[in-house]
Nucleic acid binder design. Sequence first.
DNA 1: TTAAATAATAGTAATGATTACTATTATTAA
DNA 2: TTAATAATAGTAATCATTACTATTATTTAA
Lengths: 137, 137
Amino acid sequence: MARRHSAQKGIIGEVLARLDHPTAAEVYEEVRKNFPQISLGTVYRNLSLMAENGELLRLYFPEAPDRFDPNAYEHYHAVCLRCGRIFDTDRTVPGELIGKIDQAVEACTGVRVESRVMIFSGVCKACQSGGRTQENL
Amino acid sequence: MARRHSAQKGIIGEVLARLDHPTAAEVYEEVRKNFPQISLGTVYRNLSLMAENGELLRLYFPEAPDRFDPNAYEHYHAVCLRCGRIFDTDRTVPGELIGKIDQAVEACTGVRVESRVMIFSGVCKACQSGGRTQENL
DNA sequence: TTAAATAATAGTAATGATTACTATTATTAA
DNA sequence: TTAATAATAGTAATCATTACTATTATTTAA
């Protein structure tokens, strides 16, 4: 059965694909350019609903607002400490590696792992070689 | 050189060791029993300072207030979805397993990983066998 | 089709965690 | 034993997010 989307949901989904792991506020600012009457609450509500539906991922960063990812398949994220950009892992990082970690965690905590939140931080390739910063992307 | 602690810092550290991964508010309530004049701001300030000093860990849970762990060595956490308890991994989970994940992440994102935030969720042993809930710990 | 039922919205208020600020008190050092 | 420094209590401010409400849009079914 085809999933029925509200008008704004469609717009939000489309904007999400154009921006790079935006926050709700960033989605709001972008959507507002073409639909000035939209409200931040509507953006939050639709993003939250779509995340619950498994249509997108909600990402939890320490000391920062949540971000949203239109790619709902299981993958993880690495953030560059210099330029702030966020990079997706591909499907190779889950798979057996995640299974091994889950096993190790279960072995020493007793918790049968069902899901995980993981954020990696470091320095991206461009910043390693070019000395880039948040300012000179 | 011996690290000089303020009075409250000592009290906070001591309370932290007795409670199980408490939030700042929980530390505050506990400390208040013996030092009723302490303020929540002081608790936050000291916990934050101690975390910056590497004397304790600040833990970031999705959709929940931060928690604090007096064990500052590198380890990770698993939370039980039924009873809410938080379990520590021991030192075996870092080590080579973390190194492998870091490598895999670097391979597909280009980010040289320096640190990570990881929270595992699932069902703990007691809840698996006893059908325990948050209510009947 | 059109009136009743349902869903979504804009706008705003409320909440919760955390930090910032300020005047005061305690601690250290010369 | 005073001057400089640090820490504190108490409160205000901030930021992300959710809740609420009156209104508007959409669907349904007679």
